[in-house]
């Protein structure tokens, strides 16, 4: 119980530290959001100007933009740890590795959720999709999707932050793993926007929950090894 409380305070300290740095430096969110906006705009050019076609493609575009932006965001959050050897020091503290993973993932989740919600709003405006009508289901999808990207991203950014070719390797390793999350989130969003005519929304949300739980457990179990591989 005591150990659990200590882990929780360590995780919160790590997340809080990332949040403070983010609020002051804005390394991850502003540029990443801008990037997501550009991606949406380019999708519009690539598929438009037929409004119906854009509205039909909106769920897919939304989540592609979120996932692409997510790669940048988690990468930025880990680059923070390269401030003067911080990652090495983080590994040297006598704390459980799961707590460090949880802290980094919570920080990543907060950033990802912000990105997902803002991109959702942008999609509503740009592609004339009624996002307000189905907001509870869309918010649930955004939360689960953001958690999944954060869980996987924290983990892969932890590996690639020490690689020479990290800009290439992070998306290359992360995107195939995120494929089921992309499927689930796109389908859930499409179902929610259409008013769930086939009653499949619940199943897709369950898939996202399963993905999140499995990836969080796997990430927490292995993060320590990558933190220690120096």
């Amino acid at each position: 119980m005591n150990a659990l409380r200590r882990d929780a305070s360590v995780a919160l300290a790590v997340a809080r530290k990332d949040a403070i740095a983010e609020l002051r430096g804005r390394h991850a969110t502003v540029s990443t959001l801008f990037f997501a906006g550009i991606v949406l705009l380019l999708f519009g050019f690539a598929l438009g100007p037929d409004a119906d076609r854009l509205a039909a493609a909106a769920p897919g575009l939304l989540w592609l933009a979120v996932v692409f932006a997510g790669i940048l965001a988690v990468s930025r959050l880990h680059l923070l740890e390269t401030d003067d050897g911080a990652l090495e020091h983080l590994a040297l503290y006598p704390v459980s590795r799961q707590a460090i993973y949880a802290g980094k993932a919570i920080g990543g989740f907060a950033v990802m959720l912000l990105i997902a919600v803002l991109v959702l709003v942008a999609v509503g405006i740009l592609f004339a999709v009624d996002v307000l009508g189905a907001w509870p289901a869309l918010l649930a999808t955004a939360v689960l999707g953001a958690a999944g990207v954060a869980a996987v991203g924290t983990f892969y950014a932890g590996i690639t932050v020490r690689l020479r070719a990290r800009e290439v390797m992070l998306p290359l390793l992360m995107l195939p793993v995120l494929a089921p999350l992309l499927l689930g989130a796109v389908k859930a969003t499409a179902a929610a926007l259409a008013g769930d005519p086939f009653g499949e929304l619940g199943a897709w949300l369950q898939l996202l929950v399963a993905f999140d739980v499995i990836m969080i457990v796997a990430g927490a179990a292995t993060y320590g090894y990558l933190l220690e591989d120096g």
Partner: peptide, 24 residues
């Protein structure tokens, strides 16, 4: 170490407070 492991965006006190939590 050579690398101080300090966070540039945090104040001196915040850096030490973070370390204190991590050390316990």
């Amino acid at each position: 170490s050579h690398a101080t492991g300090l966070y540039d965006d945090l104040s001196a006190r915040e850096n030490l407070a973070f370390a204190a939590t991590m050390i316990g």
